[in-house]
Design a binder for these strands. Structure first.
Lengths: 226, 226
DNA sequence: CAGGTAACTTGATTTGCGTCAAGTTGAATA
DNA sequence: TATTCAACTTGACGCAAATCAAGTTACCTG
């Protein structure tokens, strides 16, 4: 059985359900299914039938895609409040991507059927969803531009700064292997290692450990441009 | 005064207005404003107030963004039937990008106000729009992955093949400067020049000229993997 | 038609970073 | 506590492609 107030809390987290009246919100909450995923387990895998909208209630998830050449590519890291939206929109689509939980994670699910009904019922939800997707498109465009024009060092610094500002800055501790970070930034673990070392020797305090990167002096990073 | 049948023709081109009933379609057509843009003129510029959805009725437009480092980055090339959608979704947004017509171009415009009313009236339009944006997100994700994992040669070949298949294959003639193409693919004009030469010396028939690339033997390109 | 100029080509040089290889570290398990 | 193995570090090397430089070419304008 669902714990209903948890469902509402989860729903409220997400931009697409912001600014709805109380009734609509309650209706949405009724459609939500909660699910726990333990660290290391997969939320979904490539080839799965994509039939739900997924909302991150708590935790971190990495979404990867296998390229034609057989390489694995990290598409995005989902944080609390993010959602995986595209998949719910297409009929009969198979997942192109796999999603693995990096920490113990709680997600909320809404089936495509329910979501489509919701859109038809509430224009506000549709418009919020359009906004969210539009924003994501903008982000991706910006990211694409950055990838093509900047060096690995810049991208790494930017990524750390951006990610840390999304999280609670006081205790920035990224549960990421170098391997994953490398994949995400389109580089190799060796290069990541070298760049991080370079950052810390030039005065930026970064603690490196197995599966973790801890950032102490974030401000300094913002001026890195190599 | 609008030529009304043109407006309908334009509207029908676009995925987001597909599969609407006749009445809704007529209603949409009434909202559409047509505009001609001559080669070399700007459709919009960075800083403009973004208050319309833009649909490409005919022609080619390049959309560019200036990066923080002052470089210009080509974000996308709009072909007939494409539309610029994100901008219409956000309130009070300024354009981040500029759009220049590469050929004489005809576009259709719908104001944000009209479009939002339309969404509220017709769930079908909203869902189509969601689908279109979702597709764009998927494309961008795929593109991001490709950028990070493949060589310039591959990306160039892929781009030519994809673009030619979107257009009328019989007469593929890209009105692009090497400079722009280089920007789009994240490389330099020199490299583009070299790669194209390489393609043509290895049997693929490509005519190169000032501001143009003409592709005769497209099939051969599909096997290029360097 | 002549002259200017921007787009393009081609070559030489440099460099960022991927890849290979050989350690080193540290957590997990017995 | 010893053993093991994956994650990580560090160095050496090579290559794709950026950059620099010096021409060509072809369009445009007077």
């Amino acid at each position: 059985m669902l714990k209903h107030h948890d469902a509402i809390a989860c729903v409220k987290l997400v931009p697409i359900f912001q600014q709805l009246n109380h009734d609509t919100l309650a209706e949405v909450a009724k459609l939500v299914q909660e699910r726990h995923v333990k660290k290391g387990e997969f939320v979904f895998m490539a080839g799965d039938h994509a039939d739900s909208l997924m909302i991150m209630a708590h935790g971190q998830v990495k979404v990867t895609q296998s390229t034609a050449s057989g390489r694995e590519q990290l598409i995005r890291l989902l944080q609390t409040g993010d959602f995986d939206g595209e998949s719910v929109l297409f009929e009969d689509a198979q997942r192109q991507t796999s999603a693995e939980a990096l920490t113990d994670t709680q997600i909320c699910l809404i089936t495509r059927q329910d979501f489509q009904k919701l859109i038809q019922r509430s224009a506000a939800v549709a418009i919020n969803m359009l906004n969210a997707l539009g924003k994501r498109v903008s982000e991706l465009e910006a990211q694409a531009a950055a990838t093509l024009t900047t060096s690995v060092g810049e991208r790494l610094a930017n990524y750390l700064v951006e990610t840390s500002s999304e999280l609670d800055t006081a205790d920035f501790d990224l549960p990421l292997q170098k391997k994953d970070l490398a994949l995400y930034l389109g580089t190799s673990p060796e290069t990541i290692s070298r760049k991080l070392k370079q950052f810390s020797t030039s005065g930026l305090i970064i603690q490196r450990g197995r599966n973790h990167i801890k950032l102490v002096n974030i401000d300094g990073l913002m001026m890195v441009n190599s």
